[in-house]
Amino acid sequence: MLELRLVQGSLLKKVLEAIKELVTDANFDCSATGFSLQAMDSSHVALVALLLRSEGFEHYRCDRNLSMGMNLNNVSKMLRCAGNDDIITLKADDGSDTVTFMFESPNQDKIADFEMKLMDIDSEHLGIPEAEYHAIVKMPSAEFARICKDLSSIGDTVVISVTKEGVKFSTRGDIGNANIVCRQNTTVDKPEEATIIEMQEPVSLTFALRYMNSFTKATPLSNTVTISLSSELPVVVEYKVADMGYIRFYLAPKIED
């Protein structure tokens, strides 16, 4: 028996919008720790890791570990039927091949349930080792989204370089090239507007902008984004999901032959 009640149902709606472009089908795993997902995109270049901790749910019942295969486009179709203020409850019986999404309006005058068929998915789970990152950049998520969008109108790849001067996003294409430098800036009115750069050593890596743009679909989840870089390692682009968890996107770098 599985029953997860999320008062801030809009978080789940935003999570689905954030990942459905990157991944088509995925297994959602439920355990005592929380509700999680790990899935690679079809070309095995990018990975999304989601964790919503059990403490973040108003009610969290998961009698045994359960893996539920879902088509994310179909989940998104279901969740789009929930109002932004609705409370969302996920329910599944042991051994059932369906999951039920229950939507309750805030004043309880409308209750809907949508039952969705589950599917068998052969999932490939990657072991992601703990890593020490050479540079960690925390910046406003809207700013990062704007940079990725702007650069993708010029080129296909972005070089992200962190030095003590700041973080530089560069691209080049047929029509020309572009460089955007963001300096550390902590003298802002609100903490979420700050750009904070923690650098152990300079790092410069190249990534496909198409994937970066896909990650920025998570922007509505959080005012800030954290970008962790190490030479010779995939970048981690992390968005917090309120105080209950995170979405982390991993992207393998392009490396000079």
């Binding site: 990018a46 789970h125 990657l126 072991g127 496909a208 995939p234 393998a252 392009k254 032959d257």
Partner: peptide, 14 residues
């Protein structure tokens, strides 16, 4: 030119 690496070059299937 640059080669797009796969995640499996860095992380192993578990």
């Amino acid at each position: 030119s640059e080669t797009q690496h796969l995640l499996t070059n860095f992380f192993h299937l578990s």
